[in-house]
Amino acid sequence: MGLFGQRRKTAPARQTDEDLFDEELQRRLEVLALVARKIYRGRQRAERRTRKTGAGIEFADHREYAPGDDFRYLDLNVYQRTGRLLIRLFEEEEDLSVYVIVDTSRSMEMGSPAKLDYAKRIAAALSYVALANLDRVSVLGFSDQMKSRLAPTRGKNRIFKVFEFLRPLEADGHTDLRTALRTFAAQNKRRGVAILISDLYDPQGFEDGINQLRYAKFDPYVLHVIDPNDARPPLHGDVRLVDHETGETREVTVTPRILEKFAKAHAEYLHRIQEFCGTKQVTYHALPTDVPFDEAILGILRSGGLLA
């Protein structure tokens, strides 16, 4: 109700491609690689070795127990001596394959900065760290199906290939994690780390998609790109909400109470994803787009498990 309706612009801001992989980004990637190297050296790990719990024979290292870890790998001896819960890590004697899977559905073009741009930078950064670590890196884009793929490559100087692959990726299509990731698993027989970078806005549910990676024996990592405005959209009054991907509409009269409820529902949705990943031993990282991407990468690296 109200005679004094006001219209507010909510169009997503779109960052240009030219900005994405400039020299400043490359300089920051160098710094990231150096920092990552220190992290790995401190743990005395060799290059080109996978570090998986339970997948190898040779003991490699410990790390702190985190909720969701398989407690079969708890080092009970250490626990008896020190009272600390540590997980034993084993090495596999093979090159590590790193798959960076970027969600390019239409919902990823929303937000400020656009979630897709943010995801591209994250993907580039992780690829660079992995390439610098002499891992085999493959980058893929998907929406309702796998759309494009950068063949596995190795070596730090191949990062420009990664840039060239990521640069033309456009947001298009709706999200279908299950179909797309099942296709991915079928197409990539060499197992390895599968890093899923997505906003996880899948009307069919995110669980099936992640499970496809688990079932295919990939080591899945979920990097959840979150636009902070999604939780509290600047809406008021009578509006018709249109799904940016599906075109599905809902009419709603937005009031402060409704906005509160929506924020709560959004928070519950995030919590559900996090809880699912935890119980399925899938490493999960929430990446709000208002956090600089290099800070986000360092956070991911410091938490351990990924790439080293």
């Binding site: 309706g5 219209r7 909510t10 919902s107 929303m110 937000g111 906003d199 806005y201 009307p203 636009d227 999604d230 959209p233 809406l235 009054g237 009578d238 509006v239 018709r240 909400l241 249109v242 799904d243 940016h244 991907e245 599906t246 599905e248 509409t249 809902r250 009419e251 709603v252 409704i258 409820k261 929506f262 529902a265 959004h266 949705y269």
Partner: peptide, 17 residues
């Protein structure tokens, strides 16, 4: 005639609706 607002994921609104 309501204003048309695009949102990334309308399913989240369904519980509230």
């Amino acid at each position: 005639r309501r204003r048309r607002i695009e949102v990334p994921f309308v399913k989240l609104w369904e519980e509230i609706l």
